[in-house]
Design a binder for these strands. Structure first.
Lengths: 211, 211, 211, 211
DNA sequence: GATGAATGAGTGTTCATTCAT
DNA sequence: GATGAATGAACACTCATTCAT
């Protein structure tokens, strides 16, 4: 069955369901989220759900992918046009934390997704890392950062951002990350990427690059 | 009711259940793990489970806390007696990845725990971070690393390790982390912590330290 | 969740469940009555039960209250318009025994309800006694019966009816109470309430009336 | 297996179990009473239960029959040697209410027993009624009470006592029945049995006697 | 498109009973 | 006699999904 909304009414209902699903998934997680809860939150009848989605997993995937695109967009938007790499880092992470504060769903959901929908989970991480890694790659080629492996660095720094966000945005249920923490993280990132450093050997070439 | 095993036979059964639970949780996650699956895996009757555990959540918490202590122990064991901070980092992370390869359960489980058992989830992260942060703190006071905020740095670097481990150990279902990735991560960490660096302002004091 | 049937089909199913539940409760009692038995008896699927009732206790309460209202109605119906008090007694008890023979459920259930649902148990007895006591009260004020405490008398005579019904309707699994027993009971009641009697002090006032 | 206690220790354990069972049955009813609860209350191990009783039903029957004998004894004790029939009634009922206040178990249990153990339930009622009815019979033959059917009257008046006890001893959780209620009931009973009365026809013979 | 009643497989948990020690 | 670990059938209840209206 084709479930694309064919009428404005249908499109509206579908949108209500997606919003409700994000809310419910964020609040109680995938497994505790029942279709009944989602339809009640959306204000539609139970059966209506299946006019728009194949099942629970499909709406989950849709919500995750949607959120994933939106973070990615928010982050690249924020760093676009920023020439200095470190400034771009700052802007990107700030956008990431802001998004986290506004959409705890993504966070909470993605950490559940391992067993629910590994494919979309990986797509999400790959999406973000790809953008980040290519940014690092070009910064490296321009000599703005030191010679790190861009893919490894991208995963590592994304991981750093993830736990910091979990700890100081989600756990604190905060509207925004505390400035001191943000600066602390920036300090670490700056150190990790800083163009000149006496630490570490200088590989100076691409040998052994990951992927 | 007191569920402490009072006989050797009881202790043996309890241990079988814990091993089985770790396995089942790691394979299918908390929600898909049924008590039936666990008892079948353990080779005991369904009812026996309730002789030893209050319920599903209790065995989950026990498994998580147990694994948590074991990683922590493995990591501190590995870095104990290593004088050089960077060497200690290398050893700690190596132990972490080795543990991850051997006990994917911890990883998979912990990322589910947000909605299942937030308390133990936090205890786990706090446990690990505490040890890590105090190591950084004393290294900093000895001038072995630069003046980063130890708590923020600990969370950030643990996050780095977590995603790297997820990406290259779990997703690849590997026995160990690829050397190149490991070195890539070490390179990032070295940069982040390196004692001399031209990057960053030098706070040189404790103002604004987190927590 | 609102479980009111919203369609004729729903109402029909709900009714089938109530009838089945009365039957099952009467046959095996509350604790041996399983939801499976009830739904099988009703010819619907297990899950359907929960579309209409919150749980086992709710359907129990509903059945009890329903039966309670029906006996009360049958009894007051029977004695309505009967001028003579003793005749009214006869009619009321006759209706009571007839109801008992037709709905053993009420009897059997109510005697279980102490631990299952004390509230509805009390509501049932209070319901019946209230009607009975006010009948006695007005008969007394008209001098048709002697000066007994109407509330105490109502409880006492209801108890008399209850055990007689239990002994000669339920235990004998009879369609109706044997005439001789019925007359024997009426004889006792007549004596207890008879307007002229040499027995007993004549309080002649309301002092010490119960409740 | 013969479960008669063969040693003083065994007899003591058995007694502890019986006391515990009465307590537990009275508090939570038959179905909610688990063997574990009973053995815990008795302070013995679970398995020990089965050295003394065949199963849950057996201990239930034992407790009921034991209590039944004890009420009967208390009641006949109280009225023994009382010459006047009405005085004997007063004494018997007083003893009954006192027993009820002290052993709510009997009441609560007996009303459950319909589905648990119909045989002992009937034995209990038969026991009590037999004694009562034969008392009435001989009083009648001596002309102390009027010519009621002794069996029917015994059941009826026992029912009266039962509900009065339920209402004013159990429901009020009282130590004793309120005097006014007791006198109210006595008043009803006196009327029902009083030797001279203008009410009722005088059967004057045994025709149609029940049983 | 929208509705909500119906379905039934599956879950966590309880508990009377057995039995090796 | 006493102990407590082990057993497994049974239960109340949930929920993704279907389908007649």
């Amino acid at each position: 069955m084709d479930r694309t909304a064919r009428t404005p009414r249908g499109a509206r209902t579908r949108a209500k369901l997606l919003t409700a699903a994000e809310e419910v998934f964020a609040t109680v997680g995938y497994h505790e989220a029942s279709i009944v809860k989602i339809t009640e939150e959306a204000g539609v009848a139970l059966g209506t759900f299946y006019t728009h989605f194949e099942g629970k997993k499909e709406i989950f995937d849709t919500v995750v992918l949607d959120l994933s695109q939106r973070v990615r967009h928010a982050m690249s938007e924020a760093s676009t046009g920023v020439d200095d790499r470190l400034e771009a880092e700052r802007a990107g992470f700030r956008a990431f934390f802001a998004f986290t504060a506004q959409h705890p769903a993504l966070y909470r959901i993605i950490r559940q997704a391992e067993f629910v929908s590994p494919e979309v989970m990986r797509r999400h991480y790959d999406n973000i890392v790809d953008g980040y890694a290519s940014g690092l790659e070009s910064a490296r080629s321009r000599g703005e950062i030191r010679d790190v492996d861009p893919v490894v660095a991208a995963w590592a720094l994304m991981g750093a951002g993830e736990l910091i966000g979990m700890r100081w945005v989600l756990w604190e249920d905060a509207d925004a990350i505390p400035e001191a923490v943000y600066e602390g993280l920036m300090d670490v990132i700056r150190g990790a990427l800083a163009p000149t450093t006496t630490a570490g050997t200088d590989p100076g070439n691409d040998e052994g690059r990951v992927r």
